[in-house]
């Protein structure tokens, strides 16, 4: 394996980790004041580079979120088309989203702060 290939692989791993870590937030954000069925949600997520997931990841995750009371699901039949299962956030889901947003924004702020303040200047350490 060349150095370039190695670097590419590390980057890919990091992307996978990042996507995994933010997936729940991404799904809740996509369902914010919006009702979508599985295929719609999948296509929406796949249209973003950092949120492209597969069917095999999405559906079991929606199943878990439903069991945890974070999303609600409803079968809807429109006209002659086959019934589709629509997902929306519950009240618990909205609270959870608010919590995740706080964590996410803090994390972005912290990283951005570090990036904006390179060495050799000494940074004040919080709590000291």
């Amino acid at each position: 394996m060349t150095a370039d290939e190695k670097e590419e692989k590390t980057q890919e791993k990091w992307e996978v980790q990042l996507r995994k870590g933010t997936l729940e937030l991404v799904i809740l954000a996509a369902l914010q004041h919006r009702t979508l069925y599985g295929l719609q949600l999948l296509k929406l997520l796949q249209s973003f580079k950092s949120a492209a997931i597969t069917e095999g990841t999405l559906y079991p995750l929606l199943d878990r979120l439903k069991r945890e009371g974070i999303v609600d699901a409803q079968w809807v039949q429109e006209g002659d088309v086959r019934p589709r299962k629509y997902y929306s956030l519950t009240a618990t889901g909205h609270h959870k989203l608010a919590d995740l947003i706080t964590l996410w924004r803090q994390s972005v702020l912290d990283i951005e702060f570090l990036l904006a303040h390179p060495g050799p200047d000494v940074l004040p350490v919080q709590g000291e």
């Binding site: 599985g38 295929l39 559906y59 086959r82 019934p83 589709r84 299962k85």
Partner: peptide, 16 residues
């Protein structure tokens, strides 16, 4: 329920 949803997805995607 799981099967119904996945089946619905597959046939929807095929139609698309």
């Amino acid at each position: 329920e799981v099967l119904k949803e996945i089946e619905s997805h597959i046939f929807d995607a095929l139609e698309q």
